[in-house]
Nucleic acid binder design. Structure first.
Length: 838
DNA sequence: GCAAGGTC
């Protein structure tokens, strides 16, 4: 038996560091091995993996999609190989002479599998050392020491359950993805993917779109009256209602004639009599602690996409400000002391008052959600506070959300008073009922510290039964029933969670993948024609791949494996047989499936008939990666139209009346815009004469080049040289708005000042050269400054206002001067930035 | 060039 050090293996570096601290009493030293942190104390070493450090895949001879029939993948061998070479190498070095190895990966199924991967890597180089497994629910002194005092064995059945999932996902995903891509002739970047999780997610979106398409709006009418309390003059709105066939209260009137009759009666009424008044207090309980899904939802409500919210949370976690952001847990662990954590915020600018008000309460008893898991706590602040200069504006906003959510979970319930008033009007012996619902927040409770929920009150005055009210106004509103709403990103993630597909760590990535695969576009996401075709085809030939059934089945199989009731081989074999059957169906269908997919792919790219030859005009990609419009009749027809250079084109439903071509929208994140009909844009440019505004600074003197305002066929505008392409001097102009050339002249460049008229306020663009210089200074300076950690968009802007436009400028600046002129920035912070800039 | 799951 080797006498070497004992080795502890965790799932990630962060956990390794904290466990080393706990076990060593903070005496552990960190050293680097192959670029990986190794924590060292006494006779111990601790290393963190990076999740899975080995991956499963088919051997290289299966790599060529054309050479290998997709169906062959079903029974192809599967290899395991290191994916994180340096970590694996470091682990091997450490394991070789270890006298004992302890696996301390996360306490969940995937953690058990990661542990088994480590186990095998260790056994490769060390046959004798005992290998233990420790399990703890949170990385705290008590739990960790307790776990290390009572080591257990690795649960190979549980790990095998995870391995079965890996294999089944790979085989189904790869075989079907290749089959669909090959039959649609989509190889290369735009292959057609399917999988156990993306399939059902996409089907959710497509199904909702189908409902929207099939929706047939119905007309209905609603009637309102404004009522006024006689003595006080207080006014409120009441709505007409009636008992429907089932005796339920109904507000919508479904036929116009009845609506008109009721309205006629209502109009003649001058007063209403209060029939009933009902008061009710409702307790509004504070929300549960944040799990990943609820965090994403809350961040979504303040404008962050799921992807962005998670990326910011990841940064805040790495910097030590919040706990691990990927968690299903909604119950704080016992060792979290709410008073202590709240106290950390006392005395701070942003949170001090709220923290004190919470500490004034009798006790802080945190709310609990339904889910209690063992791997990570709900997301909460760690108590280590960033200053607003440490992190960007966006990060601070998200951090504040996490802090306030924690505050809310220990705050008191709010109380609402609901007031419901029913009053009748009876101008002609047939009474009509009107109702009004008011609500008032009588106790602010957690809303005081968590302002993210809507808590608008609606006013209805105190009235008494029998009281007479004036009818001051009546309204008749024609409405239509609305189709169901599309899923937003956070609704989608919540629904996935309810359906049990994906995990806390992957759901937002799955949505991103659907965007990347051209299955969805816009936000809230809408399915492309390709997505509809893939879902329809899957429904027809391989229903399992778009149904949550597959995950449910897998979950129950995994449970059975973990419980020792089934084994890995049985489950994977059964799954392979099922996939064989699916493939038989696919083969029988012949080429039909491929044709369907190709048709949809083409429809997603088709604008309409070519004005030259009548074939379809399609969005195409040039050799250089830019998009343009080309004719399907090429090479017989060479008609082309340019598209803007920014963004990815999306074909809209709207059509150009003149050319019968669909409008094009350019998707480019925040810079997304509608380009319109590319033929119209090109025609406009052809008709527009260049307007000369001065001499070209580049070639004017030598060759007589002049600067002119030009409209390009791609829709963009610029100030460019008339000798183009011999001289390519150019300055950008905005895409929209009328450009006015004024009499005012720039002293430095001799060019006229320009004004852009677009909507409300005219924009004084000024001299185009000066304007472009300013723009460049801002762009470069801004981006550059933001490359320094701690400087966000807003801070960069403040610095620019203070005359610091770039990193060299920042380094030369006097910290005290900046501290004096930039609000919220201290001299030490500036010195800190200057140090980082070196 | 495939999936889904860890983590960065």
């Amino acid at each position: 038996m080797s006498k070497g050090p004992e080795l502890i293996i965790t799932e990630k570096d962060n956990a390794a560091r904290r466990i080393a601290d706990i076990l060593s009493g903070e005496s552990a030293d960190a050293e680097r091995m192959n670029g990986v942190n190794v924590y060292k104390w006494g006779g111990k070493r601790c290393i963190g993996l990076s999740g899975h450090v080995v991956g499963v895949d088919f051997p290289p001879e299966y790599n060529d999609w054309r050479d290998v029939e997709p169906v062959e993948l079903i029974d192809a061998p599967i290899d395991k190989h290191p994916t994180q070479e340096n970590i694996v190498a470091a682990l091997r070095r450490l394991a070789r002479h270890a006298s004992r190895v302890t696996i301390a990966t996360d306490y969940d199924r995937e953690g058990e599998l990661i542990g088994k991967e480590a186990y095998e890597l260790v056994r490769d180089v060390n046959e004798d050392a005992p290998i233990d497994r420790v399990r703890f629910s949170s990385i705290t002194q008590n739990e960790v020491t307790e776990a290390f005092d009572n080591p257990e064995d690795l649960d190979f059945d549980l790990a095998a359950a995870g391995e079965a999932r890996q294999i089944i996902d790979l085989v189904w995903g790869a075989a079907l993805t290749r089959f669909l891509s090959l039959s649609a002739r989509q190889l290369g970047n735009d292959f057609i993917s399917v999988g156990r999780v993306q399939g059902p997610t996409l089907k959710l979106i497509v199904d909702r779109e189908r409902e929207i398409d099939a929706f047939d709006p119905e007309d209905y009418w609603e009637l309102f009256a404004d009522l006024e309390k006689d003595d006080s003059g207080e006014n409120f709105e009441a709505q007409y209602f009636y008992p429907d066939e089932d005796g339920n209260e109904a507000e919508r009137v479904w036929d116009e004639e009845t609506a008109n009759e009721v309205y006629d009666t209502l109009q003649t009424a001058s007063s209403a009599t209060v029939q009933s008044v009902r008061r009710r207090t409702r307790t509004d309980k504070p929300p549960a602690p944040f799990n990943t899904t609820q965090f994403i939802r809350a961040a979504g409500s303040i404008g962050y996409s799921a992807q962005r919210a998670m990326s910011i949370a990841e940064d805040l976690y790495t910097a030590g400000y919040i706990t691990y952001p990927r968690t299903d847990n909604t119950v704080y662990p016992d060792d979290l002391d709410p008073e202590e954590l709240v106290s950390e915020f006392v005395g701070t600018n942003r949170f001090g008052d709220d923290a004190e008000s919470l500490l004034d309460l009798d006790e802080l008893d945190p709310t609990e959600g339904d889910e209690e898991t063992t791997d990570h706590p709900p997301i909460h602040p760690t108590g280590e506070l960033p200053s607003s200069a440490d992190i960007s504006e966006d990060e601070y906003e998200v951090y504040e959300l996490v802090v306030r959510r924690f505050f809310a979970t220990v705050a008191e319930a709010a109380k609402w008073e609901h007031l419901r008033v029913v009053a009748d009007v009876d101008p002609d012996g047939e009474p009509l009922s009107l109702k009004a619902n008011g609500k008032r927040l009588v106790k602010e409770g957690y809303h005081a510290v968590y302002p993210y929920f809507n808590n608008t009150e609606s006013f209805v005055p105190d009235v008494e039964e029998g009281e007479a009210l004036d009818v001051t106004e009546t309204r008749f509103e024609a409405k239509q029933t609305q189709p169901p709403r599309r899923y937003g990103q956070s609704r989608l993630i919540e629904t996935m969670e309810q359906m049990g597909i994906g995990t806390k760590a992957t759901r937002h990535d799955v949505i991103q993948k659907l965007y990347d695969r051209n299955y969805i576009e816009s936000d809230p996401p809408r399915p492309t024609r390709l997505a509809r075709a893939v879902v329809s085809a899957s429904e027809e030939f391989a229903d399992r791949i778009v149904s949550e059934e597959m995950t449910a089945q897998l979950e129950s199989d995994m449970l059975a494996i973990a419980d020792g009731e089934k084994n890995f081989e049985d489950v994977t074999e059964e799954s392979r047989e099922m996939l064989e059957t699916v493939f038989e169906g696919l083969m029988e269908s012949g080429d039909e499936l491929g044709k369907q997919l190709q048709k949809s792919l083409k429809a997603d790219k088709t604008l309409g008939p070519c004005p030259e030859c009548g074939e379809d005009l399609l969005v195409r990609k040039s050799r250089y990666g830019s998009y343009f419009v080309g004719c399907d009749g090429y090479p017989d027809c060479e008609h082309t139209l340019p598209l803007p250079s920014t963004g990815k084109p999306l074909i809209l439903e709207d059509e150009c009346e003149e050319h019968g071509l669909h409008h094009v929208k350019m998707l480019a994140g925040r810079k997304t815009f509608v380009h319109g009909c590319p033929q119209c844009k090109a025609d406009e440019a052809d008709e527009q004469d260049d307007e000369v505004i001065g001499e070209c600074p580049e070639c004017g003197e030598e060759h007589g080049g002049e600067l002119a305002i030009k409209q390009l066929r791609s829709g963009s505008r610029l100030v460019g040289c008339t000798r183009y392409p011999e001289c390519d001097y150019s300055l950008p102009l905005p895409r929209r708005g009328e450009i006015e050339v004024t009499d005012e002249e720039c002293e430095e460049h001799g060019l006229p000042h320009l004004v852009v008229h677009n909507g409300d306020e005219p924009w004084e663009l000024g001299c185009p050269i000066c304007n472009y210089r300013e723009y460049q200074a801002q762009q470069v300076g801004g981006d550059e400054l933001q490359s320094i950690s701690g400087i966000g968009e807003k801070t960069a802007e403040k610095l620019k206002d203070a005359g610091i436009a770039d990193v060299p400028g920042l380094k030369d600046a006097d910290p005290d001067d900046i501290a004096a002129s930039v609000e919220g920035v201290g001299a030490d912070t500036v010195r800190d930035w200057q140090a980082k800039a070196d």
